[in-house]
């Protein structure tokens, strides 16, 4: 618990909070700018569901989708780098085993990702509310909304699915970093995973249902008729698989703590 608190002081800073406000505030503003005269919706929840509904085609929609995800991986990437390259040196002798460090590191990352999306969704909601006041409050046309967006419960599914999805990709990112010692390769892999998932959905790739990003989007569930319960199990299973993979890397890669090749 003390170690989690130590990591928390690094991650939970005003600077990081401001990044979240800007990223998600911008999302709300971009969404409102795409309003036409006919599409002013009733509630912020409905609007949030539509905003984070998911994408199934490349282009500006995919760019917008990446816009709120990439800053998270950038922040976590810097966190991985700082902890693994610099901070470990004074922390490891105080924790006795590397696995104790790993568990605290993964716990705080999981919490940070959850808070990132929670604060982010609230920020988008507030920005939607605030900016909408400038628009005409005429009757919305509920009939044009997809059926999924009419159920407020889906906001909860969006939140938890995005949280688990981001944590899964973070584990992948960390694992690639441990293997390559290169954050850029990790970041490219994460972007590639999101990009190919969306392309898979777009071209009706038969195995698209097995792409994590597809499982994190309501649009993916709607298009491929996936069950939410199965998606939660999917994430739980692959999170455990990646965790075991990371443990095995730490166990068998004997030169991982201090990169010797950089010193010769």
């Amino acid at each position: 618990m003390k170690l989690i608190k130590y990591f928390g002081y690094y991650l939970f800073t005003w600077k990081h909070l401001i990044v979240i406000f800007i990223v998600f505030g911008l999302q709300g503003a971009l969404f409102i700018s795409s309003y036409s005269g006919e599409t002013v919706f009733h509630t912020v929840i409905t609007e949030l569901i539509l905003k984070f509904y998911g994408v199934d085609r490349p282009g500006i929609e995919l760019f917008s989708w990446l816009l709120h995800q990439l800053p998270l991986y950038a922040l976590l990437g810097v966190f991985i780098y700082q902890q693994w390259n610099h901070h470990f040196i004074y922390v490891f002798p105080r924790v006795e085993t590397i696995y104790r460090w790993l568990h605290a590191f993964l716990c705080i990352s999981f919490i940070f990702i959850g808070i990132y999306f929670f604060v982010g969704f609230c920020t988008t909601g507030v920005s939607l509310l605030g900016i909408k006041k400038w628009f005409l409050a005429h009757d919305q046309l509920l009939s044009i909304l997809p059926l999924f967006a009419q159920n407020p419960l889906h906001m909860i599914h969006i939140f938890f699915l995005m949280w688990l999805h981001a944590f899964l990709l973070f584990l992948m990112y960390f694992m690639i970093f441990l293997l390559s010692w290169n954050l850029v390769i990790g970041m490219i892999s994460v972007i590639g995973m999101i990009y190919f998932s969306v392309i898979g959905l777009y071209i009706d790739f038969p195995w698209a249902a097995y792409f994590p990003t597809v499982r994190s989007m309501i649009k993916g569930h709607e298009k491929l008729h996936l069950s939410f319960a199965y998606s939660y199990l999917f994430f739980a299973f692959f999170i455990v698989v990646l965790y075991i993979g990371i443990r095995l890397i730490l166990k068998y890669n004997k030169d991982i703590i201090w990169k010797i090749k950089n010193e010769i």
Partner: peptide, 19 residues
């Protein structure tokens, strides 16, 4: 052993390790 750190040890290396 690797990954298990000695107890009762203070260390200083030339690396920035502070927040």
């Amino acid at each position: 052993k690797y990954g298990k750190f000695p107890k009762n040890l203070g260390i200083l290396f030339d690396k920035p390790g502070f927040i």
